[in-house]
């Protein structure tokens, strides 16, 4: 009979080193076994595909230009932007659902003590849980790339934009996954971990959106004759922070700079007094900030799990 060991020896799977993490292997096996994984993926694609179709129908009607032809570039961008927005929405909902039960579920099913008395390092436990959940989210994102790529048929969208949108979506998923596992480790109760994760996400979205809008309103209302460039800098940075903390505003403003200034990595900002400055594009700040924050949250989770019950 073929044993698991003989199978691994001939395996050319590039993910093999990652699967040496026992938790990741176990979780992936459990997640992909049975119809659930297939059903979730299918539903996800139906939702994203359905929206894309609707947008296409609505878009072709709305983007007729003056010569009576469909404006392909605009339609392409609208379709692309919409697919990314839907994906962002789904990732925001799905990732916490996959991770908020990761550690608390072990408590609830009375398997945590068994794990804790093994030699498994805490970081491997956290990483395994995170990796298996995110691997599935990545699968969802990759599966939707063909839908994003429909925009190519109409023009107006470059490969770089798909790569950037994927990066922002991945950074979002990684951060949300870490938040989910963090609360899961803190509470011992999956329901509470879920609530805390969603409340945190909602707070981030509300605060950043409101902050960005307010900062923008103040900048727009500035009187060039009275404002100093110093105060404008403060406002610019404040607005930048709010914009770059929110994946949706990050994507929108990145797209805006890309369309208006044709630059991918930087953008030029013109002050009210006419001087200009060059700043990094929001997606760079967003991705770096959330990946760093993810690392911090990851270590906080590990640290918490290392603590022995007093």
């Amino acid at each position: 009979m073929e044993t698991p060991a003989t199978r691994t020896r001939i395996s050319l799977n590039p993910l093999r080193p990652l699967l040496r993490n026992p938790v990741a292997l176990k979780e992936l096996r459990g997640r992909m076994r049975g119809p659930r994984a297939f059903v979730v993926l299918t539903c996800y694609l139906i939702v994203v595909g359905g929206f894309t179709t609707l947008l296409y129908i609505a878009g072709t009607a709305a983007t007729y230009n003056t010569t009576g032809e469909v404006d392909g570039g605009t339609l392409g961008r609208v379709l692309f932007g919409s697919v990314v927005a839907i994906e962002l929405f789904l990732v925001t909902f799905i990732t916490p659902a996959f991770t908020a039960g990761s550690i608390s579920g072990e408590h609830e099913s009375q398997t945590y003590d068994l794990l804790r008395t093994t030699l498994l390092p805490e970081r491997q436990l956290v990483f395994g849980k995170l990796f298996s959940a995110l691997a599935y989210v990545f699968l969802l994102l990759l599966a939707a790339i063909p839908l994003q790529s429909i925009a190519f048929l109409f023009g107006g969208v470059d490969v770089e934009e798909i790569v950037i949108s994927l990066l922002v979506l991945l950074a979002t998923a990684i951060f949300l996954g870490n938040i989910g596992v963090y609360y899961s480790a803190m509470t011992h109760r999956t329901l509470r971990a879920n609530i805390m994760t969603y409340v945190t996400i909602l707070a981030v979205i509300l605060v950043t959106t409101a902050g960005a809008v307010i900062a923008l309103a103040i900048v727009e209302g500035l009187d060039p004759s009275t404002s100093s460039s110093g105060s404008e800098w403060v406002l610019l940075v404040a607005r930048g922070i709010f914009v770059c903390l929110n994946p949706l505003t990050t994507l929108l403003s990145t797209q805006q700079y890309l369309v208006n200034q044709q630059t991918l990595f930087t953008f030029k900002y013109t002050f009210t007094d006419g001087t200009t400055t060059t700043l990094p594009s929001p997606w760079i700040a967003f991705t770096i900030f959330y990946l760093l924050l993810s690392v911090v949250v990851f270590f906080a989770t590990t640290r918490h799990l290392k603590r022995i019950e007093g």
Binding site: P4, R20, P22, L25, K26, R29, G30, R33, G34, S109, Q110, T111, L114, L115, T118, L119, L120
Partner: peptide, 18 residues
């Protein structure tokens, strides 16, 4: 508790790996 979605040999394999 024992994990659902797991075969007997996988259960032992998991803990042996741990």
């Amino acid at each position: 508790g024992v994990y659902e979605d797991m075969k007997v040999w996988e259960y032992l394999d998991f803990f042996a790996a741990c």
